[in-house]
C-alpha cells in the first residue's frame, strides 16, 4: 500500500500547529476559547499572541456572538471548543449571528464523534455534521489526520465565509503528505480501483485504506476517496467513481442521518443512482469506552467497511 503511517498523532494537534503558524503569518487571525485551551492545542498561539487570544470562559454562546462581532473591522476569529459545544449548544447563535449574517468565523471543533472516548455520550456528538451542513453558506470540513488538519486550518483562513472545521481527540495514523495543499471542496483520490468506491471522511479514511488492503487480498479492487469537505461536496469526483465501480460505501464517525452518507446519497440519487451502504452510527448516542472499543462496537472501522463493501457488491 502506498500510504504509510509516519507516527500516530492527534488531529487536534494539527489544528494547534496550523493556528500557531497562522499567528505568525496572518495578523488578522484571532482565537477564542471556552476554557479548553489545552484540549484544543491553542496554548502556543496564546503564548505567542496573548493580545489576540480571547479566553471567554465556559460561555460558548457569548463566544460565537463575539466572534461574529470581531469580524467587523477585519479580524478572522477561530473559535475553539469540543464539537458538541461548538454546534448543538450554540446552534441559534451560529445560525443568526454567523451564518445568516455571513460572518467570516471559523468554528473549530475538537473531540468530535465517539473517539472522544471515556467521557461518554454527553460529550460525544454524532450529529454535528448534519447540523452544520444544513446552514446556508456554511462550509463543513472533517479532516482525517494531523497533516491534513494543519493544512485545512491554514486553508480556511484564506477562505472568506463561515467554516465548520471538525477534528478529534485520539492519536491516529498520520499518512497524508506533510505540508500538503488543501483545496476546500476538492475530494482527494487516495487509491484507484474498479469494483467498489469507498468514500470516507475523518478518522474513517485510514480505516478505508486498511479495508481496501483487505479487499485486495480477496481479489476485490476498491477505490478510496477522501472527502475532507462535506459541504460543498465534490459531486463530480463521486459521480465519476460511481460510474466506474457501480457501487459505493460511505464511511464516517457520525450518525447515518445527516452525515456524509446522506450527502453522497443525494448526489447519486440526482445524477447517477447507485447502490450504497452506510458505515456510520445508526441513530444512536455513544457511550463510555476506549476509542478503539467504541469504533468497534458502533461498526466504524476497517472490518465494518469490508463487510459493507461485500454487501454493496452483491447489490450491483
Amino acid at each position: 500500500m502506498k500510504y504509510t503511517d509516519t507516527g500516530k498523532k492527534d488531529t487536534r494537534s494539527g489544528f494547534g500547529a496550523g493556528l500557531t503558524e497562522l499567528g505568525k503569518t496572518n495578523k488578522n487571525v484571532v482565537a477564542l476559547c471556552a476554557d479548553l485551551t489545552g484540549s484544543l492545542k491553542m496554548d502556543e498561539f496564546k503564548a505567542n499572541h496573548p493580545e489576540r487570544f480571547f479566553q471567554v470562559g465556559i460561555a460558548e454562546a457569548n463566544m460565537i456572538g463575539m466572534a461574529a462581532g470581531m469580524t467587523i473591522g477585519g479580524k478572522i476569529p477561530f473559535t475553539g471548543t469540543f464539537a458538541n459545544f461548538s454546534t448543538g449548544r450554540v446552534y441559534d447563535q451560529i445560525r443568526q449571528s454567523v451564518a445568516y449574517s455571513g460572518k467570516n468565523v471559523k468554528i473549530c471543533a475538537s473531540h468530535a464523534g465517539v473517539t472522544l472516548g471515556e467521557d461518554g455520550a454527553t460529550h460525544q456528538i454524532l450529529e454535528d455534521i448534519g447540523l452544520m451542513k444544513m446552514l446556508p453558506g456554511m462550509t463543513v470540513i472533517n479532516t482525517c489526520d494531523y497533516n491534513q488538519t494543519k493544512a485545512a486550518t491554514l486553508a480556511i483562513a484564506e477562505h472568506d465565509g463561515p467554516v465548520y472545521l471538525r477534528f478529534g481527540r485520539p492519536k491516529v495514523a498520520n499518512f497524508t503528505p506533510e505540508n500538503g495543499t488543501f483545496e476546500i471542496g476538492k475530494a482527494v483520490m487516495l487509491q484507484e480501483g474498479t469494483d467498489v468506491t469507498i468514500v470516507a471522511t475523518g478518522h474513517l479514511v485510514w480505516e478505508a485504506l486498511q479495508a481496501a488492503g483487505t479487499l485486495q487480498e480477496q481479489g476485490i479492487s476498491a477505490e478510496v476517496i477522501n472527502i475532507h469537505t462535506i459541504k460543498p461536496l465534490d459531486d463530480e469526483a463521486i459521480i465519476t467513481s460511481a460510474k466506474k465501480t457501480g457501487c459505493v460505501v460511505t464511511a464516517e464517525e457520525h450518525n447515518y442521518l445527516g452525515g456524509l452518507g446522506e450527502s453522497v446519497a443525494r448526489v447519486l440519487a440526482q445524477q447517477h443512482p447507485t447502490p450504497q451502504e452506510f458505515v456510520a452510527t445508526q441513530d444512536t448516542f455513544g457511550e463510555s469506552g476506549t476509542p478503539d472499543q467504541l469504533m468497534d462496537k458502533y461498526g466504524l472501522n476497517a472490518n465494518a467497511i469490508v463487510k459493507a463493501s461485500k454487501k454493496v457488491l452483491d447489490r450491483k
Binding site: E51, R52, M66, G69, M70, Q93, Q96, S101, K103
Partner: peptide, 25 residues
C-alpha cells in the same frame, strides 16, 4: 446593518466582539 438580529439575546456579545476588534485596531 452590520449583523442580523431578532432571535434575542445575541446583540451584546456581537457588540463586545466589535469592541475588542476596535481595540486591536
Amino acid at each position: 446593518i452590520r449583523v442580523a438580529s431578532g432571535s434575542l439575546g445575541q446583540g451584546i456579545s456581537v457588540a463586545i466582539g466589535a469592541a475588542e476588534t476596535k481595540k486591536l485596531n
